[in-house]
Simulated assay, not measured.
Amino acid sequence: MNQLVDAQTIPESRPENANEHCPGPESEMAGKSENCEGCPNKQICESAPKGPDPDIPVLVERLKGVKHKILVLSGKGGVGKSTFSSQLTFILGSDENTRVGLIDVDICGPSIPKMMGCEDDQIHESSTGWEPVYVKENIAVMSVGFMLPTKGEAVIWRGPRKNGLIKQFLRDVDWTEDDEYLQEDNDEGEGGGGLEYLLFDTPPGTSDEHLSVVQFLKDSGIDGAILLTTPQEISLQDVRKELDFCRKAGIKVIGVVENMSGFVCPSCKKENTIFAPTTGGAKAMCLDLGYPYLGSIPLDPRIGKSCDSGLSFVETYPESPAANAYLEIVESIKSRLNDM
């Protein structure tokens, strides 16, 4: 399946006003300006085609049936972002009338296939493009993990090749290929149905993958971003940088979720603090910076067990306080989307 990957060389894009001295990859001076000297992307920008990306209109057409496009971000690794992305997908897709897509943008560390219980599946080609892997009739998943020869295969790619694959996930995947499932006409009369939500599970930081998603979706639109953090200050520091990235890239912040906020004993239901919020945690940060706080999710060892088994934690352990926290946060996300 890895033979399908035909990643193109794409220059690193930059959020608007992110660096006033950079001419930008679309400029005629890209790679040639004095300010380009010493930049690691100088040769890429200099040799790349100039002007607007001709694939952008194709991406807009391909994604016109997607109602909400949401990024799941975290400044630091290990805060549970992919866990949250997979469980958010399961919860949104628990209504069989709601179609949800999940794209694993973490090219070098694809964990979504395992967490969604579909790591042994493969992508197939049809007359309308690549077919995503369907976990359920209404839940579709796309990841480079489906294309690797073995589960232990390392993806050792530079930025341009990773960016090219992300473009293929948007341009070449038919997210509405299940014609029998789709309504012939939706209420708005566009596209005969489509996805209600398309989620992007991104790697930590603010690098190539994030810039590519922003660049490729700039005309079709991004509804907003959900940011994950843990209570301790070392994690909040990186989340502040992620919030700054959203500001510079013009991405609305749906809200911040504090993960691993205390430990709930599955037996006695008593909660203990594991990661002490020395500066007040995510709630205090959101209050200080003026961003929405969506809620906190306590630690429950069964969350990790569910992800290892590719199961919905909320459906498997509905009595857990963490399950209630997930459901409340999802309702807050839906409410925020309706108000945005």
Rank of each mutant, 00 (worst) to 15 (best):
Y317V: 13
N259F: 14
V253Q: 06
F245Q: 12
D201A: 06
I166Y: 03
T202C: 13
P292M: 13
L294M: 12
G224K: 09
Q183H: 12
T279Q: 13
I166H: 02
K50D: 00
S212M: 03
V264F: 06
P149M: 00
T206R: 02
L195D: 00
P231A: 06
K270M: 14
L71P: 05
P25F: 01
R171P: 03
V144Y: 09
E188D: 15
E177A: 13
L337P: 02
L337A: 09
V173Q: 06
I10Q: 03
K151R: 09
Q183L: 14
L165E: 06
V155T: 14
F263K: 11
G280L: 12
Q122C: 07
P160S: 02
L327R: 13
A18F: 14
G224F: 08
S306K: 03
D106M: 00
R158W: 00
S207D: 15
F84G: 02
G51P: 01
F200R: 06
S212W: 00
D238F: 02
K283R: 11
C268S: 10
G262N: 10
L71G: 08
P160E: 02
F169G: 08
E125A: 10
L311M: 13
M260H: 06
M260G: 09
D179C: 11
F200K: 04
S86I: 08
E184T: 15
P25Q: 03
K167E: 00
T98H: 01
I166K: 04
S143E: 08
G80P: 01
I234Y: 01
S320T: 07
E242V: 15
K64I: 11
S94Y: 12
N272L: 12
S85K: 02
E180M: 09
P204T: 00
S235A: 15
F90G: 02
N338Q: 14
T176H: 08
L73P: 05
L217C: 10
E315H: 05
Q8K: 14
I107V: 15
F263E: 08
P321M: 04
R161N: 12
D288L: 12
P292N: 13
E125V: 09
Y326A: 05
F216T: 02
A276P: 00
A18Y: 14
H210S: 11
C36M: 02
L236Y: 07
C286Q: 10
L73Y: 01
L59Y: 10
S220H: 09
S235M: 07
T273N: 10
I303W: 01
K162W: 04
